[in-house]
Amino acid sequence: MSIISDIVENTKAIIKGMSVTFSYIPKEKWTVQYPDEPVTMQPRYRGQHLLHVDELGREKCVACFLCAAACPSDCIYIIAADDPRAPEERTGVDERFAEVYNIDYGRCIFCGYCVEACPKDAITHGYNFELSVYNRADLLKTKDDLLITKQKQSPNYRVAFADEDVDSEYKEV
């Protein structure tokens, strides 16, 4: 191949490739501006756990240890206790409740088996995915971090509606 035909061939290939690249300049961008704009979490997303309470504010957990038994990574630690007070004043819905309920997020693999195992719907996966910490010990979350009444909604994400289009947060290309 002579030098001239080489140059012509190379230029043709470059022009062909760059024409596709340049055709993207006027089109809208796909980039999601996290954390300046909130990201959308899908309804089934498995994020940080929530410990639920009933309408009287009593914890639903009855410390049956089924979640801890189902956990593949042994990250749930529970100490059960009895609450002898009258039903309305109790911490939990039942006499037996979890005095300590820790989840070690250094070990948790977010598989969802604890949620499937729970007979009282006391534990579910929430949507919080921002779990990074500066100190490894802070990954151990206690009941104070996990109870739904104590968790704060982060402004960095929102949860999609069930009938929302999967690409709704992207613009047309």
């Binding site: 899908q42 089934r44 997303y45 690409d167």
Partner: peptide
């Protein structure tokens, strides 16, 4: 970008994007 569309489908179906279980 195309992979992101698939991962969105996974997130809606399985509840996770990468380690779907």
């Amino acid at each position: 970008r195309e992979r992101e569309e698939i991962l969105k489908i996974f997130e809606r179906q399985f509840g996770a994007r990468l380690t779907c279980h």
